[in-house]
Simulated scan of single mutants.
Amino acid sequence: MAFGEQPAYLRVAGDLRQQIVDGSLPAHTRLPSQARIREQYGVSDTVALEARKVLMAEGLVEGRSGSGTYVREHPVPRRVVRTGYRVPGSESGPFRQEQGDDEVKGTWEAYSEQEEASPGTAERLGVQPGARVMRTRYLFREEGEPVMLSTSWEPLTVTGRTPVMLPEEGPLGGRGVVERMAGVDLVVDNIAEEVGARPCLADEAVALGGVPGQIVLVAHRTFYAGGRPVETADVVVPSGRFRLAYRMPVG
């Protein structure tokens, strides 16, 4: 194979992908059968099958039992705003904390329980592996549609036996990290966030209405008070339906 020349299955997948993108194969249209692909492109059954697998892995098509393979509907991605701005005196609940847009109204479900910090979580929180932390899992919805997942961890050396030990209960329940930490005399003055991408896990796909293996965006976010980590979280957003948009203050 000459340098730069693609394998046959990638060339076939590329042509079919272009037809999907330009609308020649619109959403809900049945993808050409394996036999039709073989005949149209003059390739083997193996090449035709591998080309279909590529499109499925990319989330462009989906198999329907006993019916065939169909082009998936892909809505225009909506923005999930991440911002360093905050309106003074405003209530900043978990949804606002995660999405960062004053105009967005959403709901969330949450479940908290204590656990021992894994080595990765311990490093992010600056505690020893095995230290007790409060883990809270969130599912955020906007207009009833699942938007994102978030799993947060707070060191119980900070919040244990205080009114803010449970993020969704007590006098400051549901008010967000900044307000809750202020309740125990800690001033959150810095937030660090790293964004990456990975395949969606099976349980995430169930919660977000996706397919295992599809790509999700993952933001690793940590709140600091005077250089001390007081909360860290993994925020998971379906990449095909949403984009992360950032607004940051200057100075």
Rank of each mutant, 00 (worst) to 15 (best):
A8V: 13
V12L: 08
A13D: 06
G14C: 03
D15Y: 10
V21C: 04
D22A: 07
D22G: 03
S24G: 13
H28E: 03
S33G: 15
Q34V: 11
A35D: 07
R36S: 12
R38P: 01
G42W: 06
S44H: 02
V47F: 04
E50A: 14
V54D: 09
M56S: 09
G59P: 03
V61I: 13
E62G: 07
S65C: 00
S65M: 03
G66D: 06
S67F: 13
T69I: 13
Y70P: 04
P75Q: 13
V76D: 13
P77L: 02
P77C: 04
G84K: 07
P88L: 02
S90K: 09
G93W: 06
F95M: 09
Q97K: 00
V104I: 13
K105E: 13
T107C: 01
E109M: 09
E115Q: 15
E116Y: 02
P119C: 08
P119N: 06
A122V: 02
E123L: 14
V127L: 04
Q128I: 00
G130K: 03
A131S: 09
R132G: 00
V133N: 01
M134C: 10
T136W: 07
L139M: 12
F140L: 12
R141K: 14
P146M: 09
L149R: 00
T151Q: 08
W153E: 05
W153F: 15
P155G: 10
T157C: 05
V158R: 03
V158C: 04
P163C: 07
V164I: 15
G174P: 10
G174I: 11
G176W: 05
G176D: 03
V177I: 13
V178C: 02
L186Y: 03
L186G: 08
D189A: 05
D189V: 01
N190Q: 15
I191E: 04
A192Y: 12
G196I: 05
D203S: 14
A207T: 04
A207D: 07
L208V: 12
G209T: 07
Q214W: 03
I215V: 15
I215M: 10
A219I: 05
A219G: 10
G240T: 10
R243Q: 12
